[in-house]
Design a protein around this nucleic acid. Sequence first.
DNA 1: GTCTATAGTAGGATAGAC
DNA 2: GTCTATCCTACTATAGAC
Lengths: 189, 189
Amino acid sequence: MKPESRKEEIIRAASILFKEKGYSAVTMRDLAKAMGIKAASLYNHIQSKQEILSTIIIDLAEEFTSGMNQIVISDKNATEKLENIISLHIDVTLRNSDGLASLNNDWMHLEEENLQYFEKMRQDYEESFRDIVKKGIEEKEIKSFNVEIIVFSTLSTLRTLYLWYPKQNNIDASILKRDMISVLLKGIV
Amino acid sequence: MKPESRKEEIIRAASILFKEKGYSAVTMRDLAKAMGIKAASLYNHIQSKQEILSTIIIDLAEEFTSGMNQIVISDKNATEKLENIISLHIDVTLRNSDGLASLNNDWMHLEEENLQYFEKMRQDYEESFRDIVKKGIEEKEIKSFNVEIIVFSTLSTLRTLYLWYPKQNNIDASILKRDMISVLLKGIV
DNA sequence: GTCTATAGTAGGATAGAC
DNA sequence: GTCTATCCTACTATAGAC
């Protein structure tokens, strides 16, 4: 593991604070205090508060986009693809559950190009998800419930994992994947 | 319908703004502009920004608490109780989806007694939910998956309804209830 | 019930010394 | 790389006129 840069430390500390109070309620003075320095010193490492937010969110969104693209082009059936999506969410949640709070709740505070870029990625992600479910229904792998309800109910659970997983001390990742696949898919498959 | 008081109008307008940007990012000037008056005028109807937030959240939380209590004491089996909980969430979402954004994302900005009161209600709600699931598993009505995963996946979907339902123009409430019960329960029951 | 004016505080960010 | 000092702006809330 390469040593964490000061900038990465700041972003990690900010992720935790943003998770607790939301981007708008966290001040640069709060963040500086968490780092044990003064607010002015932060600006030797980052350009603005906004840069911290966009780094957190865009990095994560690109991770999901890249993961979804690999799943989409893979030679699997719809059920297996859904299983891989569940796996993707669990992996990202384990790696950076704090950052996911910002992605879920503070994306609207992104500015200009980053806001548009994020919204495009999120829309494409949902569209890929929807296409997989539709294909699965056509192929009779998935029960023909309302597509929107399936997409929504599954995604809402996966998107909220970041709130729940850190509180579960004793659930192993592989067991979580297995059980989550059961609970989310057994009803619809 | 009795006419809406000025205070109620303010709270309704605030709910919409809080949903869009979050409590901390909405200023009294924003809210005043949405009402077509000046910020100072708001204070003839409300005592503080904080009072607006706590009214939105506590009213909704009490609604859920009261609904859950009726379900708990009812003479139904676990499956029927879960169906009634799904119904409760859909009914509240239809009535006040904007306010639910604050309940979900801005509860941590409540102060003192209200914060404690809210957290107690939320904890009791989850505990009631968990007890119903546990009873259902004992009675062999519900599959014996991990209880926490069932509670989390179901609640996360119900709690996120406020984001999704307003975008679905053509889904009838009764159809939504039926399909949501299918998708959420068929997998576990 | 709404306004103007303003008090008092706190925010993001920069300049320049060490 | 961090500090002190500070700029400028924006926030919540109040006072008092109409």
